[in-house]
Design a protein around this nucleic acid. Structure first.
Lengths: 346, 346
DNA sequence: GTTAGCACTCTAAGTGATTGAGTGCTAAAT
DNA sequence: ATTTAGCACTCAATCACTTAGAGTGCTAAC
């Protein structure tokens, strides 16, 4: 168990390191006004903290640096509730004051503000197809054997795909199919579209359509890829300003990871509710060994819709980041729920 | 004027430097089998070439490095027509053998192959709205005051926008407008959609719609932003492997530029036809001072649709890059023209 | 339990000295 | 009139060495 003084020293050390990115020595700590005891005492305490694994030396006669265990302890026990500056609050709220119509634009802007306020990289997982429901489906022919299929969700999200039409399937068949789909599939969540379609429509289709089998495989192909939600970024290169990323290979690794949506998608899936912090090795991607990620969720009517996250070095300003992130997640939840209400009760 | 031997030496020097990225000395050149004269002779020639500005020294006793003027001369006069390896040709042609339906996918894949073959960063400007024409327009209501507008082009490109509907405009009004639009605006190029709409539809709308003014401003807002064509990337971080980009600040500058579509858009607009090479300072973006860009256009029925480009260090493999780029541009042109034909004569 | 003091460690920065790749120039060879 | 061998010279890069400074751990005194 840590003594009061050890807690205090650990906190000072981490705060200092977060600011300077330089190993912190006993003298540096002892020079602070609010420290009454001498550097020798601090040295003793530091030795204990090191033995317990909360801090490390970079070499045998260097100052101390927080270990991942140390950061974890710091985040879990030493953070006081964050206070946002007026500037930050204004900045975020002015975003939502604009009341943009398009969900995607709201999200893109949120990512921008987040990265600007924090100088880290912000990542937002768009609303999951999970909760959004089909409003309408349209098929528009392009040539004799191709057509565009357009799905519109109640959130305003539009999804489109081009497909080839087998020669054996006629236009009137397709029209029939679309009509049936609009009848049967309206308000079905996008995520379960495929399974619902297979169940609900099989019998009806068999009755009305000649080349049932061909139409069926066509439809199956169409919904083969349940589109993963989109990943939005803000300040993709902000993290390059951090001194821990002067190594170009690390940078390459990280930026490449950004390009792989599926990977990022998994990184952002939070395991618990609320604001979560993953420190260094805790997220097992090699590219993110020196990074921490703070994630928060946003909701619509209590249902989780997506996540917003900040990516920084392990030495990141946890308190501030968590504050800003939490605040923005809240506003996002409120705004989106409002929008959703207006759609639902219409 | 350059003598035969000077040409030869310049060529050897640039070839060598492109491979090694190290300054080339007289001894290195003299050791080649096909060089009969001594290093001293070469030193004299190098001094002349330097005086003429084709090569430079990095310091007073270093080997020589091509200057931008040197590269320019090399590209304009010293390149033999490129020969593609079987591997490269196969790689590109297998791409088009798949005959993907969606233009965007073809382009995305092209970017991927380009960057893989060259290890540079590839950039592709999507088909201009320029030539694609409106096939159909749809408005789908989302709530009592919002709706999604969907434009489908004959290329299969889908464009969508969410908009607010003023309370004074009724649904039936909107339906009328959409009908009129589909009648009057079909096959109008997307780029002139706005102007055509204003001209063609003004009188008709006035006749049929009550709140003409409100509808009009609504439509105007809708088409306010003529969407610039999309920019696609392949191997965004490839360029980071080049030794000239070990400086993190240069990297940041460049990657940030990538994020700004409008800027890239201008970079890629070629000035002349065919394959164009811009070397170093020739493209006046600060972020690209150490880069060269090779661009080529692709066409549909002789009309320029977009460009594809390779971005590398000034010390780039011009011959190979130009070869691959030209070949792919050709195949792209052929494929897209075929597709277009099938749409047109349908 | 705390602290002053001291020996010790290690990095970072600076200083020569050395090496080697390269040049330019001159005088001899072709 | 070229070409080339030879030589003096330059400069970056590297290595060994020193020094300064920040930091530690330990011990003995407070």
């Amino acid at each position: 168990m840590l003594t009061e003084r050890q807690l205090f020293i650990l906190q000072l050390l981490i705060n200092d390191y977060i600011q300077t990115a330089e190993p912190v020595g006993s003298r540096t700590i002892s020079k602070r006004e609010d420290v009454t005891f001498s550097s020798a005492t601090i040295r003793n305490e530091l030795a204990d903290l090191e033995e317990m694994g909360y801090i490390e030396k970079t070499h045998s006669s260097s100052g101390r640096v927080p270990s991942e265990k140390g950061y974890r302890f710091y985040v879990d026990n030493l953070l006081s509730p964050p206070v946002l500056s007026k500037y930050e609050v204004n900045n975020i709220q002015s975003l939502f004051a604009e009341r943009m119509v398009e969900v995607e634009k709201v999200i893109q802007q949120s990512a921008g503000i987040l990265s600007e306020l924090t100088q880290y990289t912000s990542i937002i997982l768009g609303p999951e197809v999970f909760e959004t429901k089909l409003r309408q489906i349209q098929i528009i022919p392009l040539s004799k054997d191709t057509a565009v299929v357009i799905l519109v969700a109640d959130s305003g999200h539009v999804e489109n795909r081009t497909m080839k039409i087998p020669p054996s399937v006629s236009m009137s068949d397709i029209e029939k199919v679309v009509n049936i789909m609009n009848e049967r599939l309206k308000d079905v969540p996008l995520i379960s579209l495929k399974s619902t379609m297979m169940k609900e429509m099989a019998t009806v289709l068999k009755k009305h359509i000649e080349n049932y089998n061909e139409v069926n495989t066509m439809l199956e192909n169409l919904f083969l890829y349940t589109n993963a939600e989109k990943v939005y970024y803000g300040g993709k290169t902000n993290i390059l300003t951090q001194p821990e990323f002067k190594d170009i290979d690390k940078v390459r690794l990280l930026l490449n990871t950004f390009e792989q949506d599926e990977v990022m998608y998994n990184v952002l899936r939070p395991e618990k509710n609320g604001i979560e912090v993953k420190i260094g090795q805790e997220n097992d991607l090699e590219a993110m060994q020196n990074c921490s990620i703070v994630t928060a969720d946003y909701f619509i009517e209590g249902k989780r819709m997506g996540s917003i996250a900040l990516l920084g070095p392990t030495r990141m300003e946890y308190q501030r980041s968590m504050g800003i992130l939490g605040f923005l997640a809240n506003d996002l939840t409120r705004t989106l729920t409002d929008r959703y209400q207006s759609f639902k009760h219409w």
